[in-house]
């Protein structure tokens, strides 16, 4: 019994407890109402099924959530990720070109250029936040508005369709039976996890997010930390842009990554990272992104009109945020104390 409460308490203390509970609830719902959700098939050596779909379709969101976690941990927010996705998608498609099945520039150059552009866009946000001292919400709002304009300029206002086969692998290819985007997410996640948990950078981020000026006085270069984090968030969005453009085989500057910033923030908040900065959980954010995606997939597979997804998301956000709020937390603590439940 004692042991039992031990691991239970340990699990509850970790950041990923509540997101896990929420995700299990969604899976439980599926288990009861649409069991085909869990069916996995192997066709042509590739894994198929709703669960794989969630991983595949959710990969841009997971990438955005990784970047967003780092930004929110520094007590900031990045609203421009959707626009950066559009810029990245526009850059890569324009460079590959839409004329024939051939690529106009070598694909790796096109991909590097798209990632470079996204990195630059993120660094621009970082400069505004760290050097010009503009509130993150507003600084990134500017790129959110102007970024789609820039993407339009790159594509010359057209939706560019591409026919270059090898590029489709990024969004639609399979490796070891799993969709390739999953590997991109795994790579970025591993990088982010290593940098934040095996080097001091994670500690610096939490310190900057908790109190930027005291971090500065204790010798942490708070400005450069922020700059790098925003640039990293831009890069994550850039990867997401590659996947989205490869999936759609086109770049639509108006609609690529539309409203993904909201989903990204939602994923991070569900994942247990506080909007006020400080402690963060990358794994929690990934779970959050998976939750958002599985809610959408569940709703689609139930045959409910997809328009309802947004309403459901709204209710989910609100519930989660209220559960995390201090008022409810304190209330729960009081309740458990009164009943003498060891927590």
């Amino acid at each position: 019994m004692n042991d039992n409460t031990g691991w239970w308490a340990r699990l509850r203390r970790t950041g990923i407890f509540w997101p896990l509970v929420a995700l299990s609830l969604v899976f439980l719902f599926n288990l009861i109402f649409s069991p085909q959700f869990f069916r996995l098939e192997i066709k042509d050596g590739h894994l198929f099924g709703s669960l794989v779909d969630v991983l595949n379709r959710g990969s841009p969101l997971m990438l955005v959530a990784i970047g967003m976690t780092a930004v929110i941990a520094t007590a900031g927010v990045d609203l421009s990720v959707g626009a950066v996705i559009a810029i990245s998608a526009a850059t890569v498609t324009v460079l590959i070109g839409s004329v024939t099945g051939e690529s106009q520039t070598p694909m790796w150059i096109a991909i590097l250029a798209a990632l470079g552009a996204s990195l630059l866009a993120g660094a621009w946000n970082g400069l505004l936040v760290s050097r010009a001292r503009i509130q993150p919400m507003v600084a990134t709002l500017v790129l959110m508005v102007a970024g789609r304009g820039i993407a339009q300029l790159i594509t010359n206002g057209q939706i560019i369709t591409i026919y270059y086969e090898p590029f489709f692998f990024i969004g639609g290819g399979y490796l070891l039976g799993l969709p390739f985007p999953v590997f991109i997410v795994a790579g970025v996640f591993a990088f982010a996890w290593f940098m934040t948990r095996r080097t001091a950078i994670g500690l610096f981020i939490e310190s900057v997010g908790t109190n930027a000026s005291s971090s500065f006085h204790s010798g942490i270069n708070e400005k450069n930390i922020k700059l790098v984090i925003y640039a990293f968030c831009g890069l994550c969005a850039g990867f997401a842009g590659l996947i989205i453009s490869s999936n759609l085989k086109s770049a639509d500057a108006n609609n690529a990554g539309l409203q993904i910033e909201l989903d990204g923030i939602l994923a991070v908040v569900i994942g247990g990272t506080l909007m006020s900065g400080g402690r963060f959980s990358l794994a929690g954010s990934i779970l959050g992104a998976l939750l958002v995606q599985s809610v959408s997939t569940t709703i689609y597979s139930l045959g409910v009109p997809p328009e309802v997804v947004q309403v459901v998301k709204a209710v989910v956000v609100l519930t989660v945020v209220l559960l995390y709020s201090d008022v409810v937390k304190n209330g729960l603590d009081k309740l458990s104390q009164r009943q003498g439940v060891p927590s």
Binding site: L262, I265, S276, V308, Q310, V311, A314, V317, L322
Partner: peptide, 27 residues
Amino acid sequence: AIIEFFKVQPFIVTLAGMFFARGMSFV
């Protein structure tokens, strides 16, 4: 009321409101 009583950031609450209103209009 949610912003004030639950001390949640206005940004998040109104974001949820945005999703809700947009979703409802499509419903």
